[in-house]
């Protein structure tokens, strides 16, 4: 067990909001350069998983272990500096700063900052460096989230619904981008509703329903799985189980 090269291990993570178990005993392991899809109907706990691992919420139980170190309940900035980062379902740029300055903030507080221009080039935002945020499209703002994450030289990035609302051309661009990060050895957990996009980026998935894991394995098999089909076709009717 000690010789396994697991990058991030999530063990029985449970997050509770009031009486609601938004996340229930979810476990997951991921290695460097690996990409895993995180799917499930609306409200199934995908973003909650990201938020809990990234230190926004404290889990009710369970552990998060990065390269053998227990980082459960650590504060967000130390989690970010340790190498875990994320994008936001609704992008959260620093709206009073330029594109360049947005990335510079990460770079200032990074343990080993990546060059800002290189980072912008990797997400195709280089020519927007001196633009204000208000001039960016939603897709570009999401890529700026990615750039801010990359400036901290992350080992793993949680990508929360990058594809929603993109044109086919943009989808292709973003898929290529994510594949390239993998090639650099960055692990990724990709939250996504668009299966067509997801199959370009990941081979395996974890399916959540009402906060519980109902499937882990190859994406192909997931699409054939009876329970997964029922959850997706049945909409939110599973919410109470």
């Amino acid at each position: 067990m000690t010789d396994s090269p697991v990058l991030l291990r999530i063990e029985n993570l449970t997050t509770v909001f009031g009486g609601l178990k938004a996340l229930s005993e979810v476990s997951l392991e991921i290695n460097p350069g690996q990409a895993i899809g995180l799917v499930g109907p609306n409200g199934s706990g995908k973003t909650t998983l990201v938020n809990t691992v990234c230190g926004l919420y404290r889990p009710a139980s369970g552990r998060v272990i990065l390269e053998g170190t227990d980082i459960t309940g650590h504060r967000p900035h130390s989690i970010a500096r340790a190498g875990i980062n994320r994008t936001f379902q609704i992008p959260k740029p620093f709206k009073d700063l330029s594109v360049y300055e947005n990335v510079k903030v990460s770079s200032i507080h990074s343990r080993n900052p990546a060059p800002i221009e290189e980072v912008l080039a990797r997400v195709n935002l280089r020519e927007f460096a001196n633009h204000p945020i208000s001039e960016l499209t939603a897709s570009q703002q999401k890529r700026l989230d990615l750039a801010r994450a990359l400036a901290l030289e992350p080992k793993i990035i949680f990508v929360d619904e990058l594809a929603a609302g993109l044109t086919p051309g943009e989808l292709h661009e973003v898929a290529e981008m994510l594949k390239q990060f993998q090639a650099f050895g960055i692990a990724m957990i990709v939250v996504e509703h668009l299966m067509g996009f997801l199959e370009q980026v990941v081979a395996s998935v974890l399916v959540l329903s009402a906060g519980r894991t109902i499937f882990t394995g190859a994406l192909r098999n997931a699409l054939a799985d009876e329970e997964v089909k029922r959850v997706f076709l049945g909409g939110e009717s599973d919410a109470g189980n």
Binding site: C54, G55, L56, R75, P76, H77, A80, F94, S106
Partner: peptide
């Protein structure tokens, strides 16, 4: 300024 815009985003930027 980053903190003023979005404290949690800023913390994920390592702040």
């Amino acid at each position: 300024k980053a903190i003023r815009d979005d404290p949690y985003s800023a913390s994920m930027a390592g702040v």
